[in-house]
Design a protein around this nucleic acid. Sequence first.
DNA 1: CATTTTATGTGTCGTAGCGCACAGAAAATT
DNA 2: AATTTTCTGTGCGCTACGACACATAAAATG
Lengths: 235, 235
Amino acid sequence: MSVVIPVQVTNHLIRCLSREERNRFLQHCESVNLVFGDILCELDQPIQHVYFPLAGFISLVISMEDHQPLEVGLIGNEGMLGATLALGIADAPLKAVVQGSGSALRMTAAQFQLELRNSPSMLSTLNSYLYVLVMQLSQTAACTHFHEIEPRLARWLLMTHDRAHADHFHLTQEYLADMLGVRRSSITIAAGKLQQQKLISYIRGDINILDRKKLEAVSCECYSLLNDHYARLFP
Amino acid sequence: MSVVIPVQVTNHLIRCLSREERNRFLQHCESVNLVFGDILCELDQPIQHVYFPLAGFISLVISMEDHQPLEVGLIGNEGMLGATLALGIADAPLKAVVQGSGSALRMTAAQFQLELRNSPSMLSTLNSYLYVLVMQLSQTAACTHFHEIEPRLARWLLMTHDRAHADHFHLTQEYLADMLGVRRSSITIAAGKLQQQKLISYIRGDINILDRKKLEAVSCECYSLLNDHYARLFP
DNA sequence: CATTTTATGTGTCGTAGCGCACAGAAAATT
DNA sequence: AATTTTCTGTGCGCTACGACACATAAAATG
């Protein structure tokens, strides 16, 4: 199972490990491509692998009767998919889909649970991450309910920007609409406003972040709140 | 710290423990009254005690700028407050307020963390509970966004009914409105409809559940989904 | 019993966002 | 180059719900 590992392991959680633990841990990882649309796990189905994104990012979505799936969480190189294995439950609590192509390190669920047993620092890192997840889910619930589409879109673009590590990424309005749980044409309008203000450019799914600072001003406070939560637990 | 413990310990999580562990655990608990409006913990503040409701129930709420706090979770004798201590973080991820007066067992946070170390079955129970919390928060996020007030109110009444262990409880429309994140007069209308259909009666905050079956039919699917999630992990 | 406080019912108006429908335009496919 | 598919812009009517306002009536308080 020893596999070629990228020279730069840019995943924050893995970087939280001591050099020794990290090396042992990486020996059981394999490098994989994340491809847009890939379903990495399904609600209530056994987790096959845990994923540590390096580039690219993963959406946690919840499906509802009579509605498009709604995004409740976003995972990039600041986090991981499969953290709930630390709770000793083998099934996934949410569906996970690749939203931005890129790469990740992954490990089988079984191996990961083995590693957890003799890697206390990984366990504590994971615990902190789960704690952040709880705050993230709560904040997202309130944000989705109270805030308007434009600030929410701005927040989403910022979060994606952080995780894409590039000023440019590709996502259609259709997908954005699903993520935010709104109509496609509502995104057209909100994105149009952001474009008018020269905060982004948007051509058939090709999004460019033009003015990050102003985008932060337009987005709801949830963006900085969530960042603060994360920063406090992962200094 | 040995304290009088009610003969019947009706909290499900404590009942998940083996007889031996349970007895040891209970020796460090004290019995307290939950009084409506009591704030049991504040966001980002150290958790003082963990609470295991026997009767009565606790709301997890998130505060937003320019908005009333929104409820994202409800804790009765099926759960506990303070489970995140199992993640090794001392601060509360959410504010918690008593929504239904009653009683609970409680333990200091410090003692609880000690107990966790030599009570593996408590730890695994807690882990399962945290897993349920993640699912609950996700489902609540989607429900709050997509579903209309009447089904949401019905769901809330059912969940409260389950935790109050009585067909009657007291809550003003003002409070209900805050919990659901809506206007007070929207509750008047929704509750009025439920009353017309003889599903509940509602007189100045005194709520009576008249027809549980039909209330379930009116509520959104989230009610049974959340119950299923819980039942799967705590058979 | 008078007064204040609390809780509910109602009513009016404004609006964000939905559902639906269709048209134009860019990209992909043949 | 012609055709199909994908993506975006736009418009219209509708509705759930918000903001605000006020009336009534039951409790609590003096």
